[in-house]
């Protein structure tokens, strides 16, 4: 799967309260409404800056904190095509895979700057920075996770296989 868009840059330890604040997660389960509040405490205009297909690019430990699945879901509904980070917190990581939000672990994510035009090949993990004419490589995910992502999430995976294909 090939993805194209520009980078929206964030730092280290972006927690789930920043991604979608608890005060909204309890208000509604309408993910499109939640999507308008993504990253609001860090950048009140974030949602309006996103063009469909753009990427969130962050530092270490993206998504630490609560187990709220609304975090990857709201990012997905904000039309972000994938999150590229130096590392992910574990619950966010599995929630992203289970809800079909592509994630890439890239040690060189800090070489990407705000606004850089990126192209990403999910199956190979290749990230091409068109602005800097540079190629970066993301870590390969275990096969089960790639399969769940490609199938669009865990619900689809379970329907298709009747169980886990570990």
């Amino acid at each position: 799967m090939n993805l194209k868009g520009k980078a929206h840059k964030f730092g280290d330890s972006i927690n789930t309260d920043y991604i979608i604040s608890g005060k909204y997660k309890f208000k509604t389960l309408d993910m499109d409404e939640l999507a308008t509040h993504v990253m609001e405490d860090l950048d009140p205009d974030f949602c309006s800056k996103v063009t469909a297909g753009d990427f969130i690019v962050a530092g270490k430990n993206f998504g630490l904190g609560s187990s709220r699945e609304q975090a990857p879901l709201a990012i997905k509904h904000a039309k972000i095509s994938a999150v590229i980070a130096r590392s992910f917190a574990r619950i966010f990581f599995r929630n992203a895979i289970n809800t079909g939000l592509p994630i890439l672990i890239c040690r060189d994510a800090d070489r990407i700057d705000e606004g850089d035009e990126l192209e990403v090949d999910l199956s190979s993990g290749l990230i091409i920075n068109r602005t800097k004419e540079e190629e970066l490589k993301a870590e390969k995910l275990p096969p089960i996770m790639i399969r769940i992502l490609e199938e669009g999430g865990l619900a689809e995976h379970l329907i298709r296989h009747g169980g886990f294909e570990v």
Binding site: E69, R94, N95, N98
Partner: peptide, 30 residues
């Protein structure tokens, strides 16, 4: 537990792991 502080169950020598809603749905289903 579909809560990040499910680690708490280790206080009685159990293994408690926090996950999200979709994982919990898979436990309900499968």
């Amino acid at each position: 537990g579909s809560d990040s502080h499910s680690t708490t169950y280790g206080a009685v020598g159990a293994i408690g792991i926090g996950i999200g809603a979709m994982d919990m749905a898979s436990i309900w289903a499968k």
